[in-house]
Each structure stands twice: as structure tokens, then as C-alpha cells.
Design a protein around this nucleic acid. Structure first.
Ligand code: ZN
Ligand code: ZN
Ligand code: ZN
Ligand code: ZN
Ligand code: ZN
Ligand code: ZN
Length: 232
DNA sequence: GAGTTTGAAACT
DNA sequence: CAGTTTCAAACTC
């Protein structure tokens, strides 16, 4: 029925010719050269320019490593394409989203969000998409459309001042209390916080009072009183 | 690989 | 604010 869909961040209908990113995935020759409206509040790293500050390699190692748990045994069998060059190469093909090295967050596979909404993990974490993402040509979250990306971010920040605060984006679980209305937690109803559907569990942290989970069984523990594994 | 389930984001 | 829809990931087969 109603219908206006893709017209969020002022995305025109003409950018069809975006083909692929530049050979250099993510680098700004001159970050400071990128001037943005001074109206924008520069609060943190990715506020304006994603990837401007790499998180280096000190990413916290989540107890529940996505799927990098081990190269030999994973939740899903390793997907070996059996493609070229020897099969002994146990280079985990990206079955889903994972950070091959350390930098980039998980890779997305967005299809309809254009990677300009929080649906996109890349965008949500303040990072550009890159070739490893499966978003392909639907993606606007790359330096080529910096204006659009910045606009989309600013738009979100208008709604939520702390939309892209570093802590908030950490793993989808907010631990900061910048404002009084800044409580973020899971609201699991059917997973009992035992699967990665639960962002708390996915982040490797226990559920807290901020969560509204039902029947929480977060293996990482839960601070929700009334739960069986309280203070596990 | 397709199909289902899930909970957050987005929308009304 | 709550109800609904949309979304992409997690999961299942
Ligand atoms: Zn994306
Ligand atoms: Zn991406
Ligand atoms: Zn993308
Ligand atoms: Zn949960
Ligand atoms: Zn939780
Ligand atoms: Zn929980």
C-alpha cells in the first residue's frame, strides 16, 4: 500500500552507477579535509567519518566469539568452496559476517537498508562497508557517498543524541548511562538469551536490569532478579 | 542452498 | 507511548 521506500537520506534515484568501491577500501587521504557542517556535534570517533579511527587490534575478545571460535570446529561446518588452489587452505571463507583480521566489524549482507540504517551492522558501528560485505550495489555506506552517510548519521543522531556513541555501538549493548533515558538491553522473549539472537549473549555479557528478557538463561549470567541463574 | 525464527530498528 | 512492519542476522534443515 503506501509506499515510499527508498528515499531516506536523500538518496536520489540516480546513483545507479556506483559499481564498486575504489581499489582502496578505506582510507581518507585527508580526513581533516572533509569538512562537515559545523552544526554537527562531534562527539566521538565515527561521528562523522567512519573508519577515521580504527580500533586497532585491541578489540575486546568476546567470550562468545562469533564463529571464529576455531578454524576447525565451528557452529557451522567450514564452508570450503573447494575452489581453486588446493583444498588444504583452511582459510575460512566468509560464511557470514566475521572480521578476518581484527579491524572491521562484522560484515553485513544488507539488501534493502542501503546500509544507511542501524539495520546494517557496519553502519551501526560507524564503519564503512567494504568489498567483504555482501551488500553489493545496494550499499551507500562507503566513502563515495560520504555526504549521504553523514546525513543519515546526523538524522539518526537527531532522534537519539547518543546514536553513535562509541559505547553504545560497542556490541549493541549499552553500558553507558549518558542520559537518564539511555538504557539499552535485550528484550528477548523466545530465545531465553541463550542464542546469539540475544545481543547480550552475543556480546558475551550478562543480562542486566536494563534487560527485559523473559526467562533469561543467558549463559554469561544475568543480573535480573528472579531468574534462575541470577548472579551466576 | 533455501527457509524459518528472532529481536532490534523503523514506522505508524 | 504502544502496535505493527521491516530488516538482517542467527538458526534450522
Ligand atoms: Zn550493510
Ligand atoms: Zn557492510
Ligand atoms: Zn553496505
Ligand atoms: Zn537477551
Ligand atoms: Zn540482556
Ligand atoms: Zn536475558
Amino acid at each position: 500500500m503506501t509506499s515510499n521506500d527508498n528515499r531516506e537520506a536523500g538518496i536520489g534515484d540516480d546513483h545507479s552507477n556506483m559499481s564498486n568501491f575504489h581499489e582502496s577500501p578505506v582510507f581518507f587521504a585527508d580526513p581533516s579535509a572533509i569538512e562537515i557542517n559545523s552544526d554537527i556535534e562531534y562527539s566521538n570517533w565515527n561521528d562523522d567519518i567512519p573508519y577515521l579511527n580504527f580500533q586497532s587490534n585491541e578489540e575486546i575478545q568476546n567470550p562468545n566469539d562469533p564463529e571464529v571460535v576455531s578454524l576447525g570446529v565451528s557452529t557451522n561446518e567450514i564452508n570450503n568452496d573447494g575452489n581453486s588452489s588446493g583444498s588444504t587452505k583452511r582459510k575460512r571463507k566468509k560464511s557470514r559476517v566475521e572480521n578476518e583480521n581484527n579491524s572491521s566489524p562484522r560484515r553485513c549482507n544488507c539488501k534493502k537498508s542501503q546500509c544507511l540504517k542501524l539495520y546494517c551492522e557496519c553502519f551501526a558501528s560507524g564503519a564503512f562497508c567494504n568489498e567483504e560485505c555482501g551488500c553489493g550495489e545496494n550499499c551507500f555506506n562507503n566513502p563515495r557517498y560520504l555526504d549521504t552517510v553523514v546525513a543519515a548519521k546526523q538524522k539518526l543522531k537527531t532522534k537519539k543524541s547518543s546514536a553513535f556513541d562509541r559505547e553504545n555501538v560497542r556490541e549493541g549493548v549499552t553500558t553507558t548511562k549518558t542520559s537518564s533515558t539511555e538504557r539499552r538491553g535485550c528484550n528477548c522473549k523466545n530465545s531465553e538469551c541463550r542464542q546469539k539472537y540475544c545481543k547480550c549473549f552475543q556480546a558475551g555479557v550478562a543480562c542486566t536490569e536494563a534487560c527485559n528478557c523473559q526467562g533469561c538463561q543467558n549463559p554469561c549470567g544475568t543480573a535480573c532478579p528472579g531468574n534462575s541463574n541470577y548472579q551466576q
